[in-house]
Design a protein around this nucleic acid. Structure first.
Length: 216
DNA sequence: CTCCAGCTGC
DNA sequence: GCAGCTGGAG
């Protein structure tokens, strides 16, 4: 993988191009976000398209009503369901938010943990959201390994095991973890999608095993 | 591994 | 109808 820096550059250029066209300017990507704001974004986005969260302004409305964990603690379950309704999964999401808020207030003095192991103890926060908070809030390089990243790595480089995925993505994301991972989510949706990838315009096309075999 | 659980595009 | 959507818990 001696071309890894080149691939990273292509990905960053691709992302910038989309950004200039206004195609990936999601509200949770604009400006500097604190851990609470990233946590809420990830909870809303679970099993939900970025388009849905973005189009309904759910994220902005949620943060206006509940700008921090203390406001959120006073929220009624019905208020949460009302905002989350357009996204689907609102019962599960609102219950999860209530439990997680209670835990953070009672066990963490209202502060979202900065340590990976402490994040994982919070109910509702798993490996993905813990890494997303560390990477998207603090500019660390903890791989937010979701189905997009798994599918891309399998198609492009035939990387399968979790250890290999983590090792590879840490290297790839090195120049700018936050932007690279956001870009990969978008590439997973625009190009490296199921059931058939749309390779035209993909920034990784010249390095891609799938494209060499049967890409179009 | 299975279940969760609603909306969307196909 | 059905699979997929920036997963987590048991």
């Amino acid at each position: 993988m001696i071309f890894i820096k080149e691939i990273a550059r292509n990905i960053l250029d691709w992302y910038q191009g989309k950004w200039n066209q206004g195609l990936n300017r999601y509200p949770w990507r604009i400006g500097k976000k604190n851990p609470y704001q990233i946590l809420i974004a990830e909870l809303l986005l679970q099993h939900t398209t970025a388009k849905a969260v973005s189009d309904n302004n759910s994220y902005q409305i949620f943060l206006e009503k509940f700008p921090d964990i203390f406001f959120l603690n006073r929220a009624k379950i019905q208020d949460l369901i009302k905002i989350l309704n357009p996204l689907g999964l609102y019962n599960q999401k609102s219950e999860r938010i209530k439990k997680l808020t209670k835990y953070i207030l009672e066990k963490c003095e209202g502060q979202i943990p900065k340590d990976k192991n402490d994040l994982l103890k919070v109910p509702g926060i798993g490996d993905y959201i813990a890494n997303a908070i560390l990477t998207f809030t603090y500019d660390q390089n903890e791989v937010p390994l979701d189905n997009n990243l798994k599918r891309i790595a399998l198609n492009v480089w035939n990387i399968k095991t979790k250890e290999n995925l983590i090792h590879f993505y840490k290297k790839l994301a090195e120049p700018n973890p936050k932007i690279i991972y956001w870009a990969l989510f978008d590439i997973g949706r625009f190009h490296c999608r199921k059931p058939v990838p749309i390779c035209k315009g993909c920034p990784m096309i010249q390095y891609c095993g799938f494209f060499k075999l049967k890409g179009s």
